[in-house]
Write a protein that binds this DNA or RNA. Structure first.
Lengths: 124, 124
DNA sequence: TCCTTAAATCGATGACTATCGATATAGCGG
DNA sequence: CCGCTATATCGATAGTCATCGATTTAAGGA
């Protein structure tokens, strides 16, 4: 247990904030995601997780390079997890982390000019 | 004066945080951008500015729909401006706001899988 | 069972922030 | 010069958050 992200990856797929004014619900949802990425330490942690070729990383490999205490790193990993940006799994003594692509894509798409419609013809 | 964004739109074009672990400087820079979008009220404000077909909007049109006091809205607009996400101009009694696309693209690109190389051939 | 290591939680603290009422600044019209 | 309107700033307050030391929980090995 304790492995379920507390925020769903998407409640309305591929929505942009640039096309029309977003509502309060949607704003809360997206703002929570950006808040998770709004701290430099957390952003570097997320970058270290995301950039692993294996797609996952042991938490033990994250404490040293961050220059922060173990409780602080654990705290930030928890926030990333609660924001739905990473998932985790205990393997023996260690805990491994990896990125949740869908949630990341939701945030990226929010800043993208438009949600591409698959029904629209590409040539007029 | 007072119209210059305090953060440059890009210091290293099109950089992703997913390819390699980012440094502290870059993390500070990007985190500041996300911090500006990490508040629901601010995100809705930004969305209202960005979604205008005219590309700009009078601040007077933003206070009412937000359900917040005028000083609060002004405060949030200032933070968006300091983060380099919007620019503004006084026109008579009113102040108009618009999005700074380059800064927005910087943040979006940070969450994108890779910076597309224009030299790479599109077909193998 | 005891020791070691890894990770999470607890409690405290200092810093930051969202919010608002009151006030100040800026421009327009008479 | 005097109001009127729009916007920004100020000061205060309540809430949130990043950080760390100390402690607890969890798992493995001897």
């Amino acid at each position: 247990m304790a492995n379920l992200p507390l925020i769903e990856a998407s409640e309305d797929c591929c929505q942009s904030i640039l096309e029309a004014p977003i509502g309060e619900r949607e704003a809360d949802q997206i703002a929570k995601g950006f808040a998770a990425l709004a701290d430099p330490t957390r952003l570097r942690l997320f970058s270290m997780i995301a950039s692993r070729p294996e797609g996952e990383v042991c938490a033990c490999a994250l404490v040293g390079p961050m220059g922060k205490s173990q409780p602080t790193v654990s705290h930030h990993l928890r926030i990333l997890h609660e924001a739905g940006l990473v998932d985790r799994e205990r393997r023996g003594t260690w805990v491994w982390y990896w990125v949740v692509p869908a949630r990341l894509e939701t945030l990226r798409a929010a800043l993208a000019p438009e949600a591409v419609s698959l029904n629209a013809s590409s040539v007029g």
